[in-house]
Simulated scan of single mutants.
Amino acid sequence: MTTIATAHLTSAAAPAAFFARWADMATWPEWNADTEWVVLDGPFTQGATGTLKPRGGPKVAFTVELLDEHAFVDVSRLVGARLTFDHRIAPRAGGGSDLSVSVALTGPLRPLWMAILGKGIRDSLQRDLDALGRAAESNAPMRPEQNRH
């Protein structure tokens, strides 16, 4: 396995706000600049499948390999490789979330895909996670201290 990139974010939004954004895959292009469109073949559950279209690339099938209150892991099947996006989230004491995302490649054609995808993923992962944070915060319910005048 080769880790391509990692990104981290501390957000005022609760974990549920992030899971809501991840589940609404049709809106991924709003915060993921490298994604043209995403279609999920059913409900957002572990084992769900779908297709995504990266900007400038071919359609790619993916599977939600893990989905629980702490993680969302999706795996795209490339020719001779698997591209894994591992999203981890933890609630912060007093509200908000800590997130981390890592992207890894496995498989016999890993070096080829690393040459094709590596730089783009490294350049965009933190930017896209920051944009996801802004999107989640824009729809997050206000914390009690924000309601005071």
Rank of each mutant, 00 (worst) to 15 (best):
R77L: 10
V75D: 04
G50N: 02
V79C: 11
E65A: 15
K59F: 03
E69I: 06
D68V: 05
G47W: 10
G50T: 05
A93G: 10
V75G: 07
I89V: 11
N32R: 12
W37I: 06
K59S: 13
L66T: 15
G56V: 08
V64P: 01
P54Q: 04
A17T: 04
A71R: 12
A16L: 12
K59W: 05
D24L: 11
D34P: 01
R92E: 13
S76F: 10
R77F: 08
L52F: 14
P29G: 02
K59H: 09
E69F: 03
R82W: 05
R92Y: 09
K59N: 12
V64N: 07
T49E: 14
L67T: 02
N32W: 05
T45E: 15
L83W: 08
V39M: 10
M25R: 08
V79Q: 15
W31T: 02
P91T: 00
T49Q: 13
D41R: 09
A26P: 14
M25A: 11
G57H: 08
F72T: 03
S76Y: 10
K53Y: 07
R21S: 07
E30Q: 06
P58F: 07
T49C: 13
F85I: 04
L78D: 11
A61Y: 03
A20G: 03
D86K: 13
V38F: 02
A71V: 01
V73F: 04
G47F: 05
P91V: 01
F19N: 04
A20L: 02
M25D: 10
E30D: 08
F72R: 05
R77Q: 12
L83T: 00
G80H: 12
P29A: 00
D74Y: 06
D86V: 08
V39T: 15
M25Y: 07
F85D: 09
G80I: 09
K53H: 14
L66Q: 15
W22P: 00
V73P: 03
R21I: 00
W31V: 01
H87S: 06
V79P: 13
F18E: 09
P43E: 09
A17N: 07
A71D: 01
V75W: 03
L83M: 14
G56R: 05
E65K: 15
A71P: 00
T45K: 14
A33P: 02
D41C: 04
P29S: 02
K53D: 07
E36W: 06
R88I: 03
T63R: 11
V73G: 09
A61C: 09
R77E: 13
A33W: 05
V38N: 08
A26F: 05
P15R: 06
P58H: 07
L52Y: 14
A23W: 09
D34N: 13
H70R: 11
P15Q: 06
L67V: 04
W37V: 08
P91F: 01
A14P: 12
R55G: 00
S76Q: 14
F44H: 07
R55I: 01
A81D: 01
R21D: 07
A17L: 04
A23R: 13
D68P: 02
T35P: 01
T49W: 05
F85G: 07
L66V: 15
E36M: 14
D68K: 13
F85L: 10
G80N: 12
